[in-house]
């Protein structure tokens, strides 16, 4: 029996994902830590359940969930990239023959994909308890995915400013706080003026709006506007990442 168990463990080890790309590597790393994966998926869900089941005011519940999405995406990637730089991983990547923009975009999209898997249960919880329809859920899921791409790109780019993996956490907060404020998360979106214009292109404002709509409140924007603005922001973020890829990989 003991021999069988050993053989089974050995077979499981051999069956592990053999990564060929950064996306595959991210997946392999995530699967190697099932406990961390369960905690990362469970904590946001627990927070969402507490908020929606506790009848928290819709505006504030949506705000907290949006902040959660922003932090999960940006912090995770910022720390990962920062540690990868400290470990010499980025330098080694820079010496490989692959296209640098493609390498980094693939990496960030993979990280965003894992974050979507982690945070989709939050959207589902909001759907099940908030009373929104399938269209609202589709809007929320799309805006959530696009916003996670934006936050992962922000997390990757912010490492250019930080000297260490610890410092990058502070830099993420410094970067996100004004973006969340300008998105009207704390004060609501003004009816006119420059802040209304800024909020209209801020993906966090649209994710907030989509969460409000999903939770049964009065959404700030129409669903179509949320989707277009969030996808547009994701495309701009990816283009910016491509432009900065050399600097990100080659920074000492």
């Amino acid at each position: 029996m003991i021999g069988d168990a050993g053989a089974l463990r050995a077979a499981l080890r051999r069956s592990r994902v053999m990564p060929r790309s950064l996306a595959g590597r991210e997946l392999a790393i995530a699967l190697s830590r099932p406990r961390a994966l369960a905690i990362k998926a469970g904590l946001p869900l627990a927070l969402a359940v507490v908020l929606v089941a506790g009848d928290a005011p819709t505006f504030w519940a949506a705000m907290l969930l949006t902040v959660l999405v922003a932090m999960v995406g940006a912090v995770g990637t910022a720390v990962t990239v920062s540690r990868a730089r400290d470990a010499g991983f980025l330098t080694r990547l820079a010496a490989t023959p692959g296209s640098r923009p493609r390498l980094l975009i693939g990496w960030v999209l993979a990280a965003a994909g894992i974050d979507v898997v982690q945070l989709l249960p939050v959207a589902i919880a909001a759907w099940l308890t908030g009373g929104g329809g399938a269209t609202e859920f589709a809007v929320l899921a799309t805006v959530l995915a696009a916003t996670l791409v934006v936050t992962n790109v922000l997390g990757c780019v912010i490492t250019l400013a930080a000297a260490t993996a610890a410092e990058v956490l502070l830099d993420v907060v410094v970067l996100l706080a004004p973006l969340l404020y300008l998105g009207g998360l704390f004060t609501g979106v003004p009816a006119g003026g420059w802040r209304a214009v800024v909020a209209a292109v801020d993906p966090f404002s649209h994710l907030h709006s989509a969460f409000i709509g999903m939770l049964g409140g009065s959404a700030t924007y129409p669903g179509g506007a949320d989707v277009i603005a969030a996808l547009g922001a994701a495309l701009v973020a990816i283009a910016a990442l491509a432009g900065l890829s050399r600097r990100i990989l080659e920074r000492d």
Binding site: P19, R20, A87, G88, R92
Partner: peptide
Amino acid sequence: LALDGALEDAGLTGRQATHFWCAQ
């Protein structure tokens, strides 16, 4: 390229890490 102090992610196996670099 092998750098002094370069470390692979602790969660990967040696085979996974080497496989990834070879596939580049």
